[in-house]
C-alpha cells in the first residue's frame, strides 16, 4: 500500500513536471504582458506532432525531436506575438488579444484536423518500453527523460531570470513596464523574448507529453485547460507558485486516477480552481498589491 502510494507520487511528479512546463509559458507571458495566449494549447499539440514526425517520418532520435519541437514552439510564439499581441499592445483592451488568439486556436486545431485527421496517432519511443527499477519502484526511461528535461528547463529558466541582465530586465518589466524602459531595454523586445521562451516551453512540453497523450489535433485543449487551472492556483505571473501548483495537480491526478474516471479528474481540478478563486484569488503564494488611485 505504501509502495503503491510512493509509486503514484512518482508518477504524479512526472505528470506534474509536464504541466509545469506548459503552465510556465503561460505564466511568463502573463507576467510581462498581462495577456493570455489562448493558442498556447495548440503550441503544445503542434510540438507533440513535430516530435512525432521527426521520430516517425524522418527517423530522427526522440531527443533530437525534443529540440525540434521546442524550435517549432518558439517560431509559433514569434509569429503569434508579431501578428497579434504586438499590434494590439497598448490598445488598453484585455479582451481583444484573448479573443484573437481564440481565433488562432480554432484555426490551428481545425487546420491540423484537415491535415492530420481525427484518428489518434500512436507515438511510442524506444524509451517508453525501457523500465528502470529502484527497488520496488519503477520508472520508464521516458519518465526519467521527462523529469530530467523539465528539471533542466526549470533550473535554466530560474538561473536566467535571476542571474542574467536580460532576465533581470524581464522581471523588471513584469513588475513595472516603465521601470524597464529606464533600464535601457525596449519592452517590446523583452515581450518578444518572453513569448519565444514561453512558447518553446510549450512545444517542448508537447513533445514530452506526446507518448502519453491521445495525440489528436485537439490534444492541446485537455492539457491547456489544466495549465490554466495551474496558473491560477499558482497565482498568475508567479513562477514559484506555478511550479508548486503544477506538481500539486500532477500529484492529485496520479493519486485519484486509480479511483476516478479521467473526466472526473477535470471536475476535481476545476473544483479546486473555483474554490481557490473564491478563497484566495491571488494564488497559493500570495502577492497582494494595493495601489492608490
Amino acid at each position: 500500500m505504501f509502495v503503491l502510494a510512493v509509486q503514484q507520487g512518482l508518477n504524479g511528479l512526472v505528470l506534474g513536471s509536464l504541466y509545469v512546463l506548459v503552465a510556465l509559458g503561460l505564466t511568463l507571458v502573463y507576467g510581462v504582458l498581462v495577456q493570455i495566449n489562448f493558442a498556447h494549447a495548440d503550441f503544445v499539440m503542434i510540438g507533440a506532432f513535430s516530435a512525432y514526425f521527426v521520430t516517425h517520418a524522418l527517423h530522427g532520435d526522440y531527443l533530437l525531436s525534443l529540440a525540434a519541437a521546442g524550435a517549432v514552439g518558439a517560431l509559433l510564439g514569434y509569429l503569434v506575438n508579431a501578428a497579434i499581441f504586438a499590434p494590439l499592445l497598448g490598445k488598453g483592451s484585455e479582451l481583444r488579444p484573448l479573443i484573437a488568439t481564440i481565433g488562432v486556436s480554432v484555426m490551428l486545431e481545425n487546420g491540423a484536423l484537415a491535415l492530420l485527421g481525427p484518428v489518434p496517432y500512436a507515438f511510442a519511443t524506444r524509451y517508453s518500453a525501457e523500465v528502470i527499477r529502484f527497488g520496488p519502484l519503477y520508472l520508464t526511461a521516458q519518465s526519467v527523460i521527462i523529469l530530467a528535461v523539465a528539471a533542466t528547463a526549470i533550473v535554466l529558466l530560474h538561473g536566467f531570470l535571476r542571474f542574467t541582465f536580460l532576465g533581470k530586465a524581464l522581471r523588471a518589466v513584469a513588475q513595472d513596464r516603465e521601470t524597464a524602459g529606464l533600464m535601457g531595454i525596449a519592452p517590446d523586445r523583452l515581450i518578444m523574448l518572453t513569448f519565444i521562451i514561453g512558447s518553446a516551453l510549450a512545444g517542448l512540453g508537447g513533445a514530452l507529453l506526446a507518448p502519453v497523450l491521445v495525440l489528436t489535433p485537439f490534444a492541446g485543449t485537455s492539457v491547456i485547460v489544466k495549465a490554466f487551472a495551474i496558473v491560477i492556483i499558482g497565482g498568475f505571473g508567479n513562477i514559484e507558485g506555478t511550479i508548486l501548483a503544477g506538481l500539486l495537480v500532477g500529484l492529485i491526478e496520479a493519486m485519484t486516477t486509480q479511483v476516478l474516471d479521467p473526466g472526473l479528474i477535470d471536475i476535481v481540478v476545476f473544483g479546486l480552481l473555483l474554490a481557490m478563486l473564491v478563497i484566495r484569488p491571488t494564488g497559493l503564494i500570495a502577492e497582494r498589491r494595493e495601489e492608490n488611485v
Binding site: 479582451l95 498568475f236 473526466g263 471536475i267 473544483g271 473555483l274 478563486l277 473564491v278
Partner: peptide, 28 residues
C-alpha cells in the same frame, strides 16, 4: 458572485472552468 473579485482574465478562465465542469457532469 463566486468570482466577483476577479479581474477580467481570471473570470475568463473561471467561466471556462465552469463550462468544463458542466460538460463533464453531463458526461459522467
Amino acid at each position: 458572485l463566486l468570482t466577483v473579485r476577479l479581474r477580467g482574465h481570471y473570470l475568463a478562465i473561471a467561466s471556462l472552468g465552469f463550462a468544463v465542469i458542466t460538460y463533464q457532469v453531463l458526461l459522467n
